[in-house]
Amino acid sequence: MAEGVVLMDREAIRRALVRIAHEIVERHRGTDRLVLVGIHRRGVPLARRIAANLEAIEGAAPPVGTLDIGLYRDDVGHRPFPALAATRLPLPIEGQTVILVDDVLFTGRTVRAALDAVTDWGRPAAIQLAVLVDRGHRELPIRADYVGKNVPTARREEVRVELEETDGQEQVILVKPSRDKGQERRGGE
């Protein structure tokens, strides 16, 4: 249905998530005191997959939480309110290293909101960020610690991540700006 350039196929996504898991293990020398938190919506299945990869590598999976940043947006009252999904963090997060997981890193505003949300639950030892795609165009001083793929994009282009769990198929595509205003927007921030 969606037209555009395929940036990552099923196999590329799988390999990127395996590599991210290896980088996490290397950086943390294991999975002890580690918590993965998927940012709703596509960050959640990505966090679960990275946790499964960590278990395959280390024999132990870290706890996985889910986070909806709707209550922490910086544009509350400026656009129609989005529906809220469940936030469930494995507690306590005091002293843990929290790795936020999202599909696309774009302006950085979602991550900014996620940082506020996580720190409302306590004071982790560190917070890191893992993303499947970094497409640039940051509006805040935020960077990712683990990146599946860096993709240079134009601002008006759309990076669309589709996952089996949320979309029934598995790919990352770059969609050129369309004149058709009715097109569904998603996969960004």
């Binding site: 209550l71 809220l84 936030t87 306590g122």
Partner: peptide, 18 residues
Amino acid sequence: TAQALSEILSRPIKKVPT
């Protein structure tokens, strides 16, 4: 929405900036 928001009631710090 209420179900999603009820999570705030069981937080250690019961406040969001919304």
